[in-house]
C-alpha cells in the first residue's frame, strides 16, 4: 500500500468528495496556497468558485459556512490553526451546534470545520492549543481527532458526507508523519475506536498525537511484563464508550491520556464514564495524564514538558499496577 503524509491523505479525501459531489466547497484563509498543504492544488482542478480564499475573518467565514450549509452547499471551512476557532466561537456554539435542534429539526447543516490541533512544533500558545474538549462540551457537534494518515482520509470523507456540523482536528504534531493510505475512496464510521494494541493488564485510552506516545509507553512497559491495551478513540463525539468499557472490564485498570488541559479535558470525561459504568471492575484508582495547566510554552524543552510525555504515561501505568485493591 502507498505510504503518504497526513496532509496528502487530507487532500485525497477533499478531492474524492469534491469529485463526487459538486456542492462540496472548500473555503478559508489561503486555502489555495495552503500552509498545511491539505487543500493545496485543489483550485487547479475545481476552480476558484469551489476553492475559495477568504479574508482573515473567522467569525464571518464560519457563519457564512453555516448559512451556505443551510441552503444547499456542503462547505469545508479550513480555519488553519485550531486556536483561530476561538474567533469563530459565537457562530459555532450558538448557531452551528444548535440550529437544527433549536428550529425543531427544520434544517440540516452539512458542514466541516477543519484545523490543526495541539502542539509539537514550538508554535507558541496562540498556535498550539488543544481545542477538542471545548467542542466536546457543545451539544450536537461532532469532533474528530485522527492519529494516522489512514484515519485522516477515511474520517474526513465520512465527515464531509455527514449532515451535521463536524470538527476535524488534525494533530499538528503528525503533519509530516507518513502511513499507509489506499488510493481509493473509503470511509471510517464516526464513534468507532481503534484498538492499537491488545493487553490484559491496563487499558490506556487516548486520541490524536498521544496515540503514538501511548504505544511507545506500552512497548517500554511490555519489557517489564506489563501488557497495555491501547485504545485510540479517533472520534471524541460521538465516542466509542462500549469499546473503552469492554476493555476496562477486562483489565481492571485505566489510564486516560489526553493532550489537553487537565480541568474538564477529554480524559476527565473518559475517567468519569469509567467511574460510572465500570467502577466495580476497577482494581486501582483511575489515572489521568494531561497537559500541565499552563499555556503552551515556546521553547522545545518546555513545550514537551507541558504535554503528556512517554515517561509520565509509563509512570501512570506503574502507579496503577502498584495500587492494591481495597
Amino acid at each position: 500500500m502507498p505510504r503518504k503524509a497526513s496532509v496528502d491523505a487530507i487532500r485525497e479525501a477533499l478531492r474524492s468528495e469534491m469529485q463526487r459531489d459538486e456542492s462540496v466547497v472548500v473555503m478559508g484563509e489561503d486555502v489555495k496556497l495552503a500552509v498545511f498543504a491539505g487543500t493545496r492544488w485543489l483550485h487547479r482542478e475545481f476552480g476558484d468558485e469551489r476553492v475559495i480564499n477568504t479574508p482573515i475573518s473567522e467569525l464571518a467565514v464560519a457563519g457564512a459556512g453555516i448559512g451556505a450549509a443551510a441552503t444547499g452547499i456542503r462547505p469545508v471551512i479550513d480555519l488553519m490553526f485550531g486556536t483561530f476557532l476561538y474567533l469563530a466561537l459565537d457562530q459555532i456554539a450558538n448557531q452551528a451546534g444548535a440550529m437544527r435542534y433549536m428550529f425543531g429539526g427544520q434544517t440540516k447543516l452539512p458542514l466541516v470545520f477543519m484545523t490543526v490541533n495541539g502542539s509539537g512544533i514550538s508554535a507558541g500558545h496562540h498556535h498550539s492549543q488543544p481545542m477538542h474538549p471545548l467542542f466536546m462540551n457543545m451539544p450536537l457537534i461532532k469532533v474528530i481527532v485522527p492519529s494516522t494518515p489512514y484515519d485522516a482520509k477515511g474520517l474526513l470523507i465520512t465527515a464531509i458526507r455527514d449532515d451535521n456540523p463536524v470538527l476535524f482536528l488534525s494533530p499538528l504534531a503528525l503533519g509530516s508523519l507518513r502511513g499507509e493510505v489506499p488510493d481509493e475512496t473509503y470511509t471510517i464510521p464516526l464513534g468507532e475506536a481503534a484498538i492499537r494494541r491488545e493487553g490484559d493488564d491496563v487499558t490506556i485510552c487516548t486520541v490524536g498525537a498521544m496515540s503514538r506516545r501511548c504505544m511507545e509507553a506500552a512497548r517500554t512497559l511490555a519489557k517489564e511484563g506489563i501488557e497495555c491495551e491501547v485504545i485510540d478513540l479517533r472520534t471524541l463525539k460521538p465516542w466509542d464508550k462500549a469499546c473503552l468499557l469492554r476493555s476496562v472490564r477486562k483489565t481492571g485498570r485505566f489510564v486516560a491520556v489526553d493532550e489537553s488541559f487537565p480541568v474538564c479535558g477529554a480524559a476527565s470525561e473518559w475517567a468519569a464514564t469509567v467511574a460510572e459504568k465500570a467502577f466495580q471492575h476497577l482494581r486501582a484508582p483511575v489515572q489521568r495524564v494531561s497537559n500541565l495547566d499552563v499555556p503552551l510554552p515556546f521553547s522545545p524543552v518546555l513545550e514537551s514538558a507541558a504535554v503528556p510525555t512517554t515517561e509520565r504515561i509509563v509512570d501512570a501505568v506503574r502507579r496503577c499496577m502498584q495500587a492494591e485493591p481495597a
Binding site: L59, A60, V61, A62, G63, A64, G65, I66, G67, A68, A69, A70, T71, G72, I73, D90, Q91, N94, Q95, M99, M102, F103
Partner: peptide, 20 residues
C-alpha cells in the same frame, strides 16, 4: 433562516446564504 438571540449573530449566516 431564523431569529437569533445573539446581537449580530444572523449577519454572517445571511452572508453565507448569499454565498450559496
Amino acid at each position: 433562516l431564523g431569529a437569533c438571540g445573539i446581537v449580530g449573530g444572523g449577519m454572517p449566516i445571511a452572508t453565507g446564504a448569499g454565498l450559496s
